[in-house]
Amino acid sequence: MSHAVPLESDSAAATGGPGGRGLEWFGVAAILMLVGAQALGLLTSPADRDMGHLQKIMYVHVPAAWNAFIAFFVVAVSSLLYLWKGQERHDLLAASAAEVGTVFTALTLALGSIWGRPTWGVWWTWDPRLTSTAVLLLIFVGYLSLRAFIEDADRRAQWSAAVGLLGALNVPIVYMSVRWWRTLHQIQSTPSTVDPEYVVGLRANAIAVLLVLVYFTMKRYRAARAERLAEQLEEQAALEGRGA
């Protein structure tokens, strides 16, 4: 009796073969870039006229926020692709990006809170930017628990794609919140409102965190493929066991 492996076999990636090692090196490079970018930002930027050294929190808070947005953009695209083509890999990529995006959103909120206390004077306030970001986090926490609780793979993927799209729709709301409504949070800075001494460190950190995001997502995606493959083999074994 032969059984078809339902997912394209990429056991090299799933079991950490040569393909896996390439990703690990990429991960090491990404982490080293992050260390370097942080050192660059911390060492080259002068104290800000208003904030003093607190400006340096920008180099972690802002890249975390931007990259959370990028992760949720990947969720949106992958979810659409899944709904359109019904291919499992798009569902698994959406799930991986959603988990990483959730981590970065939580970091954005925590870092923003630490930044807010000494500059604004409060750890938290229910202004539209903070509230909509909290809602974004909640939706994706909901998305991840949804995935954990639906056993049937097709139904899990369909529900997830719908919720993932709905959640990602929040990203433009979060982004525009500072322009649409009155907020305590300031509107977006641009290179013309930020002196070049700070722009360099910010860009370096944004790129480094982007590389970390790519590594996290790819690594999570490989694990998700392996999980799914195992799930399919287990289901098959159960069916054959029942048939015999």
Binding site: H3, T15, K219, A223, A230, E231, L233, A237
Partner: peptide, 18 residues
């Protein structure tokens, strides 16, 4: 990743036996 790999190994062994 480790857990997924282990689960996949076990599932493949199970499928191989059958």
């Amino acid at each position: 990743s480790r857990a997924a790999r282990r689960r996949l190994d076990e599932a493949s062994r199970g499928a191989g036996r059958k």
